Computed example of a mutant assay.
Amino acid sequence: MSLGVMEEEDLAEYFRLQYGERLLELLMKFPSTEEQSPSPSIRLLEKKKEAKIMHQAMEEKKETFKRRMEALNLRWEELGVKEAQLKAHIKKFEQFIQENDQKRIRALKKASKERELKRLRVKELSKAKQEMAALRQEHQRINAKLQDYSIFQKYLEKVVENSEFEEIHEVIGRYKTLVSMHYDLMQSAQEGQEKIDRAKARLTRYVEEKDDEVLQHNNELARLQMRYDRARSDVIIWESRWAHIQNTAAKKTLLLGTIKMATLNLFQIVSKQLKETTQVPLEDTHKQLDMIQEFIQDLSDIWAEVKKKEPTSTKT
């Protein structure tokens, strides 16, 4: 809604509130037509006069209200400007606070880094002091050693005076050459000794291997000798057993021949008793024994019958 429309609505509302009741009061003050009835021209003049007075009053009120509204609008604009200024000031203040916080954080980080750097510098300084003290001790030790070795300097100077060398460094060079040659000779001797040791080790391993082989062959020879001895003893045992078997077989053969002769004699006796001619071969001993067994069985049966009849004849 625009400012002009707001002013007209506020002005109408203002006049309605200010003059609504007063107009009613003024109208009530005028005499009614029944009580007084002036002429129409007089009433018209009076009405115009009252209307003019009311119009002037309304114009004054309207002007006063307009000035008040202008003052209010001006005040409102001033308040808007102050509000914008206040917002800008608050924004700047917040930005200032934020920047201060960031600066404080950066300052704290910087202070922490500076403290850490200071601690490292102090540590490095302490280490440098220790190294300096160690270097001083080393310097003192080297100076003391140099003082101790000064006698060798004097000795080398005397050697140069009493020898073919002209400078001390020539003596030192000759010494280094001799040391190098000695080192080479020692190296060669060590390599030769290592070769000899390796050859001895190989010879020792070879001798041990051959000793192991000889021992294995000796063990195998002993085992074969034991087998040979056992075989010989077994041969003797089996030879004695074979002789015993042969002797036993001869005895059994003799016994068998005797049995066959006895069987044949018995068979011939039985044949004579039976008075029968049998067709049994002389070598068939089993058949002969069967015939003898039958004969003996028959005799046993006859003898049993005789035994049964003897008591009967005795009673008679």
Rank of each mutant, 00 (worst) to 15 (best):
E164R: 03
E124N: 06
L117A: 12
R205G: 06
I168Y: 02
A128H: 08
E167D: 05
I105F: 07
E164H: 01
S188W: 02
K145N: 05
E209S: 11
Q216E: 13
K176F: 09
K129F: 15
A144D: 05
I105N: 05
E191R: 14
T204I: 06
A134F: 06
S126G: 11
R174E: 12
H217V: 11
R174I: 07
S188E: 08
I196C: 07
L120Q: 13
L125K: 04
K109I: 07
A144N: 09
E167H: 08
R141M: 08
D148R: 02
E157S: 05
R141T: 15
R119I: 10
N143H: 12
N162C: 10
E138S: 11
R202H: 15
V171H: 01
S180K: 07
V214D: 03
E114W: 03
E208Q: 13
G192V: 14
E166F: 03
E161F: 10
R119N: 10
R119E: 14
K109Q: 09
G192A: 13
H217N: 15
S150C: 06
E138C: 05
Y149C: 04
Q147M: 03
S163N: 02
E161C: 01
I172D: 01
R115G: 03
V171T: 00
H139K: 15
H139D: 10
E116T: 05
E209D: 10
K127E: 15
S112H: 07
E166N: 04
K210T: 07
L215P: 02
K158V: 11
A133D: 05
R205Y: 09
L178K: 04
Q140W: 02
Y149E: 04
R198Y: 10
E164W: 00
L108A: 15
V207I: 15
F152T: 11
D148Y: 02
K127P: 02
V214M: 08
E157G: 02
K176A: 11
K158A: 04
K176W: 09
V207M: 14
S163M: 03
E164G: 01
I168E: 05
V160Y: 00
D197H: 07
K123T: 14
Q147D: 06
Q137W: 00
E131M: 09
E116H: 00
A199D: 13
